[in-house]
Design a binder for these strands. Structure first.
Length: 446
RNA sequence: GGCCUCGUCGUCUAACGGUUAGGACGUUUGCUUUUCAAGCAAAGAACGCGGGUUCGACUCCCGCCGAGGUCACCA
């Protein structure tokens, strides 16, 4: 039997990170078993739906690399006739009945006649789960005979599209009993269920806006890459067993086993997501990194990348946990690549001497000597290694901090930056000498 | 509150009757071209509590406590 799962969001809000994980699990399960995942929009509540949310979800799915097959029709709102006929079938068989008038007029609500039985279903993650449906009373399945509600629509759609496995959030676990009751009244067969644990905020409450970013788009805007998000989300509540943590989507598909999914909720750890993201970013070759980074800057920051972008890639790739972070770094750690250092502002003397563990006069003497040493390096081979060879012995002899710190500050104008040899290597001989000279001039005036 | 579900380092997790309870993130400390980042090395850190069952329980059973979900004419 071919496995068919489904991802049925209701387009009433931004594509939630938890919803994305549910989609991912459905996708992984279906793919692992050579099946397919259907997408359908549950939009029976006309007042809360927005078309842009549908676009947002579809866009997010594509971005993550989660493929799907569209249900036909895609929206429940286009299948009202079908639900109506099931509703009539239920009423005719006595399984449902028209009750009190609807709140907003337009006929009577339809209630399901509860047989008050015990329902037990087996869940791939939790094992046997039992409910006594008696406490449900005769629950409402339609606003009126023409307007079905969620439970009826879900059962109808899952049946008609041949869904074999219902994989959804744990928040749906108590809905299962209602749906099974309807399934049995309609004579359908049950799908297999799997209720996955919820994603929790650091305080173990349900993840919501007040905890920070919850929509997929926010992570995308911050410069997280799809590979990292997919990898992190998959391993939040599931683990293939070994000690490896980095998996591509295809590898996740191969290894996925829904019965190994954790039973308890998992706290969303932004730090770890950042680590995953940085790991993926660091693995990119410089060319691809630059292409993707430039694309990010264009679409998310709506800005033009600085002229020195290509030169900054290695530095930024090593340090930036996200593209957003890397973008900031462009203007801090990489600002030394700007032709006009600090916009031409002089470097403060205290900064020049701060980490040198030496007085201004000593620092001045060191810089003068370094200038001479640097001048001796051939312009054509003014590389990080050559510069180091020229300066390092002297720095070691004099006390590295007292030589290297001022040199680094003279070249970067910053308290934090890459090391001085790297800096000089990037800048080239001319700009390096000029910046050191400027610093010397500044110190001489004191 | 009723019902359902869950309970291994701070966090994500592995092991599932016999292990020094493993890994990863984070934290702390070293090392490297004494800043920052990265890298490398190391340290600290867990079986919720109480009863059973057993030669032996994190692993099985019961109770307690704690946590989450759900109780709509939303989905």
């Amino acid at each position: 039997m071919k496995v068919i799962t489904r991802f049925p969001p209701s387009p009433t809000g931004k594509f939630h990170i938890g919803s994305a994980r549910t989609a991912l699990f459905n996708y992984l399960f279906a793919q692992h078993h050579g099946g397919t995942m259907f997408l359908r929009f549950e939009d029976t509540d006309a007042e809360r739906n927005k078309i842009e949310h549908e676009h947002d979800i579809i866009d997010g799915l594509h971005w993550l690399g989660i493929s799907y097959t569209e249900s036909i029709p895609l929206r429940q709102s286009e299948r009202l006739d079908v639900y109506r006929s099931y509703l009539h079938q239920l009423i005719e068989s006595g399984a449902a009945y028209e009750a009190e008038p609807a709140e907003n007029g337009g006929g009577n609500v339809v209630r399901f006649k509860n047989p008050n039985v015990k329902i037990t279903f087996s869940d791939l993650i939790r094992g046997e789960v039992s409910f006594d449906t008696a406490e449900l009373k005769d629950f409402i399945i339609a606003r009126n005979t023409g307007s079905p509600l969620y439970h009826l629509a879900v059962v109808a759609d899952d049946h008609d599209s041949g869904i074999t496995h219902v994989i959804r959030g744990e928040d749906h676990i108590s809905n299962t009993q209602r749906q099974i009751l309807i399934i049995e009244a309609l004579g359908f067969s049950r799908p297999v269920y799997a209720h996955i644990p919820l994603i929790l905020a650091p305080d173990r409450s349900k993840l919501s806006k007040r905890h920070g970013a919850i929509s997929l788009n926010e992570y995308r805007a911050e410069g997280f890459v799809a590979e990292a998000l997919v990898n992190y989300l998959a391993l939040l509540g599931w683990n293939p067993g070994g000690e490896r943590e980095l998996f591509s989507l295809a590898e996740l598909v191969r290894a996925f086993d829904i019965t190994q999914v954790q039973k308890s909720g998992a706290i969303f750890d932004l730090q770890k997501l950042r680590w995953f993201n940085h790991s993926y970013l660091k693995k990119l070759d410089a060319e691809e990194y630059e292409a993707r980074f430039a694309e990010y800057i264009k679409t998310e920051k709506k800005a033009a990348p600085p002229a020195y972008l290509s030169q900054a890639i290695r530095i930024v790739q090593e340090r930036g946990e996200t593209f957003g972070h890397a973008f900031e770094l462009l203007h801090t750690d990489c600002a030394f690549l700007e032709d006009n250092l600090n916009g031409g502002a002089p470097i403060p003397i205290p900064l020049l001497t701060k980490g040198a563990k030496a007085d201004a006069l000593t620092v001045l003497a060191h810089l003068k000597k370094v200038l001479v040493l640097l001048s001796g390096v051939d312009e054509k081979s003014f590389t990080t290694d050559a510069i180091k060879d020229a300066v390092f012995p002297y720095a070691t002899g004099e006390g590295r901090a007292s030589v290297l710190w001022p040199l680094r500050v003279a070249l970067s104008g910053k308290e934090k930056s890459p090391d001085p040899f790297t800096l000089a290597g990037y800048l080239g001989k001319e700009r390096t000498l000029s910046r050191v000279s400027n610093a010397i001039e500044m110190l001489s005036r004191v």
